[in-house]
Design a protein around this nucleic acid. Structure first.
Lengths: 177, 177
DNA sequence: ATCACGGGAGAACGTTCGTTCTCTCTGGTT
DNA sequence: AACCAGAGAGAACGAACGTTCTCCCGTGAT
């Protein structure tokens, strides 16, 4: 197995485990057995758990934003499609909320690499929304609705929060012309 | 020191430490030295860390909701006052987001007592908002805005999110008459 | 005064975890 | 054939943590 394949398998295992159970409660041994990559190799590729966590967050950020972007683009970049995408995401059986918000809850501001990945993700999403609606204030309002819906859907286990946020978004957009 | 005072000091120390640093990264020894209560007494009052965490969340829930309720009541129960209260909360120097959302990130659905406290808190807040605006759909939309603003204010360290959410709330309320 | 009890301080125990080390094997090079 | 670089499996190490235990002291009852 070459380094590229080892990296890929490690990131896939890390994402599965960290997202489902949280970072702190998953040991490096669990990542090793899930990925089939030896501990020695693991530490060659990611010299510490913090490095693995930061890589997990960054790859998840890219996949997550790409999925959202493509879904919305297929709907003629209608901002309301964002909330339809949220509904699909909330309905996935292993949905457990926003990985970045959850990691913030686990680490707060303590781990620098983790904090940077969290900031970067939120900045990118906000920038995307601002491109989508071209009114920065409105975009920030929609962003707040997105985050609230995600938190509540995760805690209550109810995908219907996406519909609530969508209705609010429609009202806000209508009010702004 | 009697049991009542020990309980009080333990809960105060636990809240300070758990909220500031997260639950998992605070050991029982830290709670002991901060509170001045011996370990033996600690385990008499709270037989396990899970019990202490659940008690921390429940007392915080009550104090938090009382503070919100009183602030808003002093403003003639204007729903927009909720967002002014959020702005004050976000501006506190040790603000670190919603303790319940953070705990959800740490524990997910694993610890039953913790999960129950989280659900209870969110249910109570939603019920309060529904009483405040008397339109359940609108109340749920405001709830989503609150949660989103809290998450984003915590991650970005910017109390201004309260203003963004307030403006959105004003628009939504105007649209509903 | 003595004795029993409850409490405080902190050592001790068992487990978990991040990280490193050892041992062995394989596979390519000369 | 001899050798060596690297990899895998897993033991080992050191720290941290939740929880319990030991030892000692003070206090209140008899």
């Amino acid at each position: 197995m070459n380094t590229a394949e080892a990296t890929e398998r490690l990131l896939e295992a890390a994402e599965d485990l960290f997202y489902a159970q949280g970072v702190q409660s998953v040991g490096m041994d669990a990542v090793r057995s899930r990925s089939g990559v030896s501990l020695k190799r693991l530490y060659q590729v990611f010299p510490s758990k913090d490095d693995l966590v930061a890589a997990y967050l960054n790859t998840r950020d890219e996949r997550w934003r790409r999925s959202l972007r493509e879904f919305v683009a297929a709907r003629a970049d209608d901002p309301l499609a964002v909330f339809d995408w949220l509904h699909e995401w909330f309905s996935e059986p292993d949905f457990r909320g926003c990985a970045f918000v959850n990691s913030f809850g686990e680490f707060g501001t303590l781990a620098p690499g983790v904090a940077a990945a969290i900031h970067n993700h939120k900045d990118e999403v906000r920038a995307y929304l601002r491109r989508l609606v071209a009114d920065d204030d409105l975009a920030d309002q929609l962003f707040s609705l997105m985050e609230g819906a995600t938190v509540l859907a995760a805690i209550k286990g109810d995908p219907g929060e996406a519909g609530t946020a969508r209705a609010a978004a429609a009202t806000l957009m209508a009010a702004r012309g």
